Simulated scan of single mutants.
Amino acid sequence: MSVQQIPTGKIIDGEEVIAIELTNSKGTYVKIFNYGTIINKFVVKNANGEMQDIVLGFDTFDEYLDPAYLKNYPYFGAIVGRYANRIKNGRFTIGEESYQLAQNAGTDTLHGGVVGFDRKVWDIVEIGEGAQSFVTLQYESVDGEEHFPGNLIVDLTFELTENDELILSYEAETDKATAINLTHHSYFNLAANGGNIKNHKQQIFAANYLEQDDNYSVTGKLIPVEGTPWDFTKSKAIGTDWNEDEGYDQTFVLDKIYGDLSLASKTIEEDSGLVLSVYTTEPVAHLYTAKYLGVKNGKGGKDYESYGAFCIETQHHPNAVNIPEFPSTILNPDDLYTQTTIYKVSLNK
């Protein structure tokens, strides 16, 4: 197991952007930038003995800053915060205090606002080698940033195991009650040559999904998946029941005990033989099949098009800050926010 730090030569807001590579004895490795905690590479051996990168991204760091990429910004491989997905009308209330956020998705707030945690340089606070290789990154979001209350300190640890598990462990503390809902936004494709993911087989351990309005904002209503195109309780090709013009962009309420680490999602690509299993302590998983993806000159000069990837975004219920029936997304000063999500890669045997 090894950890390597690689300077990019890029300085943003006075902070140096560093690439961190975690490698295990099998040759599996993950490359992470401390800018936005971007997972730039996740390279594993497929069933054909080939080393294969299963996440979308760019060959160089500078390409993540390209205005053409940011114009239709898909959050490639980055953390999302302070608040994942949408907050209806960009408003919420804590106690007697109301907060109005930037409305960057129609009338709603998306993924933390105009400049979220994905556009910040994080501090490297700890690195370890041994049975597991890991790096801990930290960011302090000041009171009022994107109009959220409280000084919030977030630690995110990436740990690579010998079992080809990438473990993401989050912790956060605040000095004032605030809304928080973190996730990571990697775009996966398990096919050796990429392309449309409609033939990937998908299973999600959820009997219900969340109703959304026309702007994809959660309303508070749970809908049973049985008898609908959103039924992934048994493994099926992603394209089996989808609307080809829409794909999937839906939040699934996991069948689990709240807070327990359990299997949320399993994706299989038969030609590569790769399986991606996602375990989480979070109550929901959001499946996004990248309808709006349109990125030129990705890795190897490849263009990434609609349905060229899938995301499994583990989090609390979107818009929960406005829906009291949902598990709370309010963090108080005496509490510790924690979350664990594991991306485990294996072979379909």
Rank of each mutant, 00 (worst) to 15 (best):
270 E>A: 05
202 Q>A: 07
48 N>F: 02
92 F>D: 00
252 F>L: 02
283 P>G: 04
214 D>Y: 10
51 M>F: 05
71 K>G: 14
89 N>I: 01
130 G>K: 04
274 L>F: 14
326 F>R: 05
61 F>E: 01
44 V>M: 01
21 E>Q: 11
10 K>E: 09
332 N>P: 03
102 A>C: 12
100 Q>G: 01
269 E>D: 08
224 P>M: 10
335 D>V: 01
295 V>I: 15
85 N>F: 10
114 V>N: 06
323 I>H: 07
149 P>D: 04
11 I>F: 02
187 Y>I: 02
348 N>G: 05
341 T>M: 04
45 K>W: 15
306 S>L: 11
29 Y>R: 07
185 H>T: 01
238 I>D: 02
159 E>D: 08
316 H>R: 15
108 D>W: 14
4 Q>T: 06
242 W>S: 01
211 E>D: 10
213 D>A: 02
153 I>W: 03
301 G>Y: 04
296 K>C: 14
182 L>V: 02
9 G>K: 12
343 Y>S: 02
264 A>G: 10
168 L>Y: 08
160 L>G: 12
102 A>H: 09
322 N>F: 03
124 I>V: 12
189 N>A: 06
107 T>R: 07
190 L>W: 05
186 S>G: 13
101 L>D: 00
41 K>C: 04
53 D>M: 08
58 F>L: 13
231 D>P: 01
107 T>D: 14
170 Y>N: 05
304 Y>S: 04
82 R>E: 00
220 G>K: 15
261 L>G: 00
284 V>W: 13
16 E>A: 11
335 D>A: 05
73 Y>F: 09
30 V>D: 07
246 E>K: 07
